[in-house]
């Protein structure tokens, strides 16, 4: 449910999707925490493949972001319309750093 890439020394975690809901939330969180065991400070969470996010999925996402916030500021990218709507409704776009594309997200760590 996660694909990892290292781009310009940024850890990119690509959620394979297409749904991040109650059925997936627990596994998503476990897999995610495994990937960030080394406490990386530059992390991009790529949501391009996720077309549906429900409240359980959002809860899982927030819990891993909180963990990442201890060592850096993760950037989320590739929000699809339904996910974007969810982010706006719950104001996640105000507390999470969101970029349009993976390139933008990775570039935001440069310099």
């Amino acid at each position: 449910m996660l694909k990892t890439h290292i781009i310009d020394s940024v850890l990119v975690l690509e959620v394979t999707g297409p749904r991040l809901d109650a059925a997936q939330a627990v596994r998503f969180r476990e897999e995610f925490l495994q990937q960030i065991e080394g406490n990386p400070d530059r992390v991009v969470i790529d949501f391009s493949n996720v077309t549906f996010l429900d409240s359980s999925g959002l809860g899982a996402l927030v819990s891993v972001v909180k963990r990442l916030n201890k060592h850096g500021r993760p950037v989320i990218c590739g929000l699809q319309p339904a996910v974007q709507t969810m982010f706006a409704l719950t104001r996640m776009d105000q507390v999470l750093t969101v970029r349009k594309s993976r390139d933008d997200a990775v570039a935001s760590f440069a310099g």
Partner: peptide, 9 residues
């Protein structure tokens, strides 16, 4: 707490 997200809308 950070481990689980029990929250509500």
């Amino acid at each position: 707490d950070d481990s689980i997200s029990d929250y509500f809308t």
